[in-house]
Each structure stands twice: as C-alpha cells, then as structure tokens.
Design a protein around this nucleic acid. Sequence first.
DNA 1: AACCTGAATGTTACAGGTAACATTCCAATC
DNA 2: GATTGGAATGTTACCTGTAACATTCAGGTT
Lengths: 312, 312
Amino acid sequence: MTVSRYMRNPGSVAQATRQKIAEAIDTLGYIQNRAPSMLSRASSKAIGIVIPSLSNQVFASLVQGIESITGERGYDTLLAHTGYDAATEEEKIATLLSYQVDGLILTETHHTPRTLQMLAQAGIPVVEAMELPPAPIDMAVGLDHRQAAYTAVNRLISAGCEHIAYLAARLDTRTLLRRDGYHAAINEAGLTAMVIETSASSSFSVGRDLMNESLAKYGTTDGIFCTNDDLAVGAMLCCLDYGLQVPQDIRIIGYNGLDIGQTVTPALTSVRTPRFDIGQHSARLLLDTLAGLPIKQKTIDVGFDFTAGDSA
Amino acid sequence: MTVSRYMRNPGSVAQATRQKIAEAIDTLGYIQNRAPSMLSRASSKAIGIVIPSLSNQVFASLVQGIESITGERGYDTLLAHTGYDAATEEEKIATLLSYQVDGLILTETHHTPRTLQMLAQAGIPVVEAMELPPAPIDMAVGLDHRQAAYTAVNRLISAGCEHIAYLAARLDTRTLLRRDGYHAAINEAGLTAMVIETSASSSFSVGRDLMNESLAKYGTTDGIFCTNDDLAVGAMLCCLDYGLQVPQDIRIIGYNGLDIGQTVTPALTSVRTPRFDIGQHSARLLLDTLAGLPIKQKTIDVGFDFTAGDSA
DNA sequence: AACCTGAATGTTACAGGTAACATTCCAATC
DNA sequence: GATTGGAATGTTACCTGTAACATTCAGGTT
C-alpha cells in the first residue's frame, strides 16, 4: 500500500521510506501493472487516438498536438490506425475500449452503427477531430473543409481562371466536403466543373496521373485545385514537364500546407490546416471533461488560412 | 464462465447457448475487459511496436507487415512513437510493458541502460527490426545499411563519378551506418569525402538546403548519395533549378525506394529496403517464439536491391 | 504517566476474466 | 431402471493496485 501511494504521489510517503522504495524500484526494474487500476476504477489514465494513416504528416502533427497536452497531464495515449476504413475503425475502437480508455479522439466522422453503439455503451467522452460534423457524437474540433475549398477555388476564380480542374484521391469524408466546396464556387461563377477523382490513396505519382488524365479529358486548363499537397506537387511536376508555367499558364492550389509544397518551385499555395492546434484543443476538451471541468463549447472551429506560395 | 469460453472459442459452447450469448453481446454492446487476463495470466495477446516517426512511409509499411501477421494470429498491436529519441523510447517501452505486452518489436538499436534493464526484467521476446545490430537484445530482422550504402556509392563510382557528395539528415544509427558505407567506398576508390549533414529531421526542403550547402562548399559535384528519398528529391529539384542535368551532369541515388522518387523526372534510383517483409518476418519470429515453436535463426538478413530509376 | 494529534503505514475487499477442477445433464447401452 | 461416457456448464481461487477505513507511532501537552 505504501508503494502504491509512493507511485501516485511520492510526497505522501516519509522521506526514509521514499528512499528505500526508490532504490527497490531501481534494482528490480519494477514497472506498474496497469491492469488492476483498469479493473477497479474502470479508469486507466489513458486515452485512445484513432487516425486513418501512419504515413501522413497531417495526422502526425495532430498526434503531436494531442500528446503535448496528455503528456503534461499524466495521461498515456493508445494509438490505432484504420487505413481509412470504417470496419477497421470499428475493430480498433473495440480494442481501445477493451483497454478501458477514459476517452477517445477520432479523426473520421463516418462510423458504423456498431461503432456508434459501442461508443454510446462505453459512455466515455469522444472528440471528433479535423472536421465539424453536423451531428457530432459528442465533441468536435476542426474546420469547415467545404468552406476552405470554396474559398480556395474562389481565389483561383478571382485570379482570372476559367477552366479549373479538381483533382482528388482517396475519397474520404473530408475529400468529399472539398468537392462540395469546389462545385459551389464553380457553379456560382457559372463555370464548368472538371472533376478527376480516384479512390486510390494519394501520392505524388497519383497527382501526376490525375493531371495527365485531366489534360487529356478536358484540354485547356488554367487552374487546379487539389485535395492535398501530394497531389498538387505531382500535378505541378507534370505541368512543368509539359512546359506549362506556374502560375502564368496554370495556377495550382493544394491542401494542408505541408513542407513538400515549400520545396518545389514555385512554392505551392495551399490551404493551411492547423493540425497541431486541433490536437491540442481536442486533448484539452477531452481531459477537461474527464476532470469534470465545465466546457464552454463542445465544438471548436479552428479555421484555416493560406500558405504564402507563388503557385496561385 | 460459459461466456468466457464462448469469447475465446465459440465452438466450445452448445449451439443454443451460443445463439443466446451472441444476441446478448449484440444488444448490450459488450466488449471484453482486457484487464483480468492481463492480470491472471500475465499475458495480454498483444504486442508492442515502437517506431521513431508517424509520418514516415518506411515505418508505415513496416507496421503493415507486422499487422498482416498479428491480425491473422489473433494478436493486437500497441503502437508507440519516439521521435527518434532514446529517452522517449524508454518511456514508451515502460508504458507498453505496463500493459503486459507479450512481446516487443523495436526499430532502433541504441537503447538507454534502463531500457535494457526493463527488457531483461520483463523477460519477453524482443525483435529489433530494420538493422542487424552486432549484439541484438534478442532477435533481429533487417539489412546491412552500411553494405547498402557502400554498394550504392560504388554504383556511382562505376558510372564514372569522381566528386560524390553525401547528404544526410536526422543522424540516427541507420544514417550513421550509411555514412560508414559511403566513407568505405570513397576511401577505397581514392576519392575525397564530401559530407554535408544536419541533425534536423529529414524533408524535401532540407534536401534542397543541403544540396545548396554542398555546392557552395565543394563546388564541382557529379554524384550524390542521399540517406533517404526526401533528401534526394529535394536535392534533385535543387540541381534542376541550377540547370544541372540528371544523370548527365550529376547522378543521384536515394534510399528506401519510396513512391516520391518515382514521380520526379528522371525517376530516382534508390536503395530499396523491403520494409513490409521485415515487418512480416519480425512478427513471425515473435509470435513463433511466443507459441513455443522452434526458431531456426534469431537474426534474419532480408537484403536490399535498387529501384529501376534513371537518376544514376 | 496519561492523553492527544497528525503523520505514516497497514488491512480488507474489490474489479472481471480464466485455469483448474467439479458438477450436471442427456443419450446410449446393458 | 441402472450405469456410463462425454459434452456442457458451474464453482472457486487467483492475478495486482487502490479506495476506504483502521492502526501505529512519535512528539508534544497537561
């Protein structure tokens, strides 16, 4: 019992005892078994994070933002990835719940019925990060991707573009919202939609392929809106191969404001999404809820802006 | 008790009972609590994976390889990331051990003394993936990065390069091994080493910066060996900006054989590392050990080859 | 010496699934 | 009807940390 006390709060144990325990822990290489506290208090001092992909900078910064908060408040994080698949998400959430996580941060807004049932049953706080779903499960932190895409396309239109293609890969919810925004801006301006999509996962070479396909299908093009920066860079490299000057002949806007966009010449103009902030806000919402603190608002819109690129 | 049996092996329960349990599980949204089995058997049917970064395609494929095996054998994976820091690794391993993981797959070979003590104390099987450390903790699956770099640089030398620069970022163990290989090849050929390094983490823009620095410092350069593909692509874009033709004026070899290398023109020649295979081998070694099966060899060298690029 | 106080430490019961063993049940056989 | 064998199900104890409560202890006061 004294050791248990020491582990949670060394100050609550007498100086001499503290010393002895510290030594014993050191020589034994003792590590607390989490199972008992998971059992008895139904609380684990851990939260679960579910992201779609392990190789996307976007979610890496999100996780960093989350862990910058959980770390300082003594919470551990359990990480799961779904490969953008709702069925896998269901499995991974079940696993996280089996570890009695105290809260969850999800990054998708489309869930299976069973996922929703499990979450309701678990009764733990849940944050949906990245988007602002019309009917959040519980809490949400993100931005309006439809609005961001709408604004980006209007930027091309203001610059004089009249043939604006939309290049998209991996058609997850956020990507579909961006398509809505694209269509809204295009229709409003009385232009013709030029949509090239693939369900394949996004990459530079896919960006290149989509660009080729778009040029073949639609001919004249003076503006491109890509749903992420990988595609945009692939598309830009393709344009340069065709001798098209960016932004003189063709303007390109990407999405997310990743490092890669700043390396190409001209630097990519891109919608900047504050992922680290989203992570921090999400973690704060969750941990404040767990601590029983009052929450001002269950939904936080973090907004967006543009990187200072030269491609649009 | 019958439910417990059902959960582990539905066939061990009578048909009628099975039905009733399945229904109850469904309506209740019941999810097993993992804590008890973690307690009683000191086994959790879970293994821990520790990777350095969440945004590197290399580790994403490694994890996919691992999970392709663990999934079909009924094991869960707990994922932790360290940011290439040994102290963080120590923390994360302690956390994983507190969850009573049955085994661990690590991706670094440099560990703190306390990490080694914890691992010894835990007495669980450990696989070090990616490298072939001279003195593995337990098991190892990977390739000889020194040899790979040596071979790559010799390829440049055979092609007639005489001024070969070495560009590296994020100086982890694997990167340092590649430097050794570079030096070996350079010395053997009687050439002068041209080393540009930064401890900053790797990215396209860093590749560009290193290339600029190298040209400024060493002038004439006809070959470049980069420790990864991000750097190589950044360097290539930089060369193209200077009007240098690849591979006529300058040859470039990258490392890992990622998609990005196939997008640029010319396609990047790169050392291909079979990460997915490394993941599968690692998981098999670990699970076979846990299942008490005999292990033929505790260390597996998966080798390497080159992508069919045009840059070298 | 008796008493009091607050700090330090100890005792007990509990969480939920499972190994090991025990019991029940039913159909087949004599 | 009694017996038997194997399938199905039930009972008990255990794993480890901690909440809640109990006890011990040292030093100070009367």
